[in-house]
Design a protein around this nucleic acid. Structure first.
Length: 288
DNA sequence: CTTGGGTCCTGTGCGC
DNA sequence: TGCGCACAGGACCCAA
């Protein structure tokens, strides 16, 4: 479930359980996720205290008091589950997050002193984790080339102008490049381009400053609304547990092939095309 | 430099 | 009901 709003939602859900918490038990159930887990993974985590739980792009980072940071990427299907054990210092009627996860795919389990049991579950195993020296994080290959946070002060029209200049690649593909802006994925790029009224096939370098301004505002708006809604859940959102997002009901283009365009006064129909091997949904009538 | 394609892995949903 | 295929929120790598 993982673009920026989903990862941010996960961070907010985990933070009360992890920030300030001491990890009393760590269980590694397989040697690898997408990549091998580092040597001594469980041992290096056990006994550590989580100082901060943060998000950068689509990465979650848990800075530890050991000088290392636990970094997690959810890939396509990664999710965290949380159970608070009765008597573990939490109110009765234990908080239970995302009960729908198949337990066969729970690969890592973290338990805190306060009694929270946190599972990392990932059916496709495109997700990954590593332990990295906190001081070395900014220079790490996963982080060094990331573009600005789209909801932060460094993301503005001038930035897009600079990064788009001379690029003949489509604006859709360019926005998926994490070095241009960090955290967007297929869904929110489609949604932002629809809101901005921009054809996804337009060469990035050919967009006027005015249109880039609309694009910046559309990206910020759709991400803020999605975070507000707790992100999007594409499967089993009906399982009534807390913590599941509902922004998928607000999609205007993504997944709406053959539906009439929802933009007022637009008579267009949403189409699906393939760009770079991935589906793009857009309205040819109002996105030009 | 770009683009397109294939790769990792499993689950789901659809047409037949 | 069963089977095979297309497709899925990411991101890397390589050939052309």
């Amino acid at each position: 479930m993982p673009e920026l709003p989903e990862v941010e939602t996960v961070r907010r859900g985990l933070a009360p359980h992890l920030e300030g918490a001491v990890l009393t038990r760590v269980e590694q159930r397989r040697p690898d996720l997408r990549f091998p887990l580092p040597a001594g993974f469980a041992e290096r985590l056990t006994g550590a205290r989580v100082e901060r739980l943060e998000r950068r792009a689509k990465y979650l980072t848990a800075a530890l008091d050991t000088g290392e940071t636990l970094v997690a990427h959810l890939g396509m299907t990664g999710r965290f589950t949380v159970q608070s054990e009765p008597g573990g210092g939490h109110a009765p009627g234990a908080f239970h997050y995302d009960a729908g996860a198949d337990p066969r795919h729970t690969h890592v389990v973290l338990e805190t002193e306060a009694g929270a049991v946190i599972g990392f579950n990932d059916a496709r195993r495109f997700g990954y984790m590593d332990l990295i020296a906190t001081a070395a994080l900014p220079a790490h290959p996963w982080f060094a080339r990331l573009g600005p946070e789209p909801l932060g002060p460094m993301f503005h029209v001038e930035h897009l102008q600079n990064r788009f200049a001379g690029r003949v690649q489509s604006v859709k593909a360019t926005l998926l490049d994490q070095a241009v802006v960090a955290g967007l994925g297929n869904i929110y790029v489609c949604e932002a381009l629809h809101r901005a009224g921009i054809d996804p096939q337009t060469p990035a370098g050919s967009l006027s400053p005015a249109r880039l301004g609309r694009l910046v505002r559309a990206i910020r708006a759709v991400l803020e609304e999605a975070i507000e809604a707790g992100g999007s859940t594409l499967r089993d959102y009906r399982s009534a547990d807390g913590g599941l997002g509902y922004f998928q009901h607000s999609f205007r283009a993504y997944g709406r092939e053959d539906d009439p365009c929802v933009k007022p006064r637009c008579r267009g129909v949403v189409r699906r095309i393939v760009q770079g091997g991935r589906s793009t949904f857009y309205c040819p009538a109002c996105q030009r």
